[in-house]
Computed example of a mutant assay.
Amino acid sequence: MSQIERVAIVGGNHGNELTGVHLVKKFQQYPNLIHRASFETLALLGNLKAIEEGKRYIDKDLNRCFTNQGLQNPQLSSYEDTRAKAIQQILQPQNQPSVDVIVDLHSTTANMGLSLIFCDMHPFLLRLGAYLSSTNPMVKVFVNQQSREGGFLRSLCELGFVIEVGAVAQNILNAELFQQTEQLIYGILDYFEAYNQGNIPQKSSTLTFYQYIRTIDYPRSDAYGGLRQRGEIKAMIHPHLQFRDYEPLNPGDPMFITFEGKEIFYEGEFTVYPIFINEAAYYEKGIAMHLSQKQQKIV
C-alpha cells in the first residue's frame, strides 16, 4: 500500500454526540495537536445544523446519506442529503487527491469502551487494530462487513473507520472518555506517521475481534395501521445484560424482561457477544443490540 497523505477526522456526524464534536473543535483551534510531518490532517464537523440544535439529525440520519446513488441524485434535497454532498466534495475534491483515511468519531449510550468499527477485513486496518488493542485493553475491534453498503461516511474511503466511545449519554460530555478518545486519536496518527516512515509499530501479531452476525429487535406487539412500521415495545433489556457489551451471551441466558417481569431468554445455538446493547438512537431503527462472534486472526 502507498503512503498515507491525507487524513480526515470527522466529528458530529450525529449532532448530539458531543465527544467527537468538541474534539474536532479542539483540533481546529489547536491544529498542531494533530499535525504530523508526513501527511496532512483535516478536522471536520459533520452535521452542522444538528450540532447547533443539539439533535442527532434534522431531517434524516446523515450517516446513512453517503451511498453512491444518493450522492449522485440531485433530487435529494433534505438538509442531510445536501450536507453529505458538501462533505464528499471536501473529502473527495474534483481534480485533487481524496483523503486516504477517514476517522469518524461517534459516541454511544452502550458500554462499548473504545471501539474501532471496520467495514471490511483490510489488512492495514486489522494491523492497526491489533496494535491499538494490544497497547490499550479498552480498545475493541468490531468488523461489520454488511455496513459497507449502508451509506456510512466511512464508506467514502478504503481506509475509513469509526471510533465508537461509550457509555455516554446523548448531549453529554464525559471527561474521562473524552481524554481517552483524544489519546487514542494521537496513537492512530502516530501509527500512520510510523507507517509512512517504514517503521510500523507492532506489539502483537494476533488480533481479537468481534464479527457482526445480525441485529436483534426488542420484543414487540403486532404492528397496526397508519404510519407505524413496528409494534410497541413489550420488553426491556434484561438487567443481567445491560452494560455487558462484548461479554458472552450463552444459550439460555436472560436477554429481555417484559413490563410484567417475565424473562425472555436467548435461544441461539451458540455463544454470542452482544454490542450496542440498548443504544438510545437505535430505538427508532428497531435495534436492541448487535450480535457478534468473537474471533482471532494472525495479522
Rank of each mutant, 00 (worst) to 15 (best):
H238E: 02
P74L: 08
E5L: 08
S78L: 02
Q296D: 12
C157P: 00
Q145L: 10
K25N: 13
F270I: 05
M1Q: 11
Y283L: 12
P251A: 07
I90G: 00
L45R: 02
Q180W: 10
I275H: 00
G160Q: 02
P31L: 06
I117C: 12
K297A: 11
E52Y: 06
Q145A: 12
V21M: 04
E247A: 11
L18D: 02
I287A: 07
Y79I: 11
F39Y: 14
T258C: 10
F142D: 03
Y212S: 04
P97F: 01
L45A: 08
E40C: 05
G54W: 12
L125P: 03
V143G: 01
G225K: 12
N68S: 10
Y246R: 10
Q75R: 13
Y186Q: 10
S107N: 11
G226W: 03
K262I: 10
F142P: 04
P254T: 07
A281M: 08
M255G: 01
N196P: 00
R64P: 05
N95G: 07
N16F: 12
H290G: 09
H14R: 13
Q96K: 12
P123H: 07
L114I: 08
I188M: 15
Y210N: 09
E193M: 02
V162R: 05
A84F: 03
I172M: 11
E52T: 14
E279W: 06
L116D: 01
L48A: 11
Q94S: 12
M255H: 08
L125K: 10
L227A: 12
E269M: 08
S38T: 15
R154N: 08
T135M: 09
M1K: 13
D222A: 15
G113W: 04
Q296G: 11
K49G: 10
I188S: 03
Q197H: 13
E52C: 07
Q179N: 14
Y186W: 07
Q69V: 12
F243A: 15
G11R: 01
Q94V: 11
R244W: 03
D190W: 05
V101H: 03
P201D: 02
Q89R: 14
Y57N: 05
L76K: 14
E80F: 02
E193Q: 15
G15S: 06
Y210K: 06
E164P: 00
A223E: 13
L249K: 06
E164C: 11
Q170L: 15
A50D: 07
F142E: 05
L62G: 04
L23Y: 05
A37R: 13
T41E: 10
N199H: 13
E182D: 15
G252R: 07
F66G: 00
T258S: 15
T82Q: 15
K85P: 05
Y195G: 01
P219T: 09
H22S: 08
P219A: 09
F124W: 06
G151L: 00
M138D: 15
G187H: 11
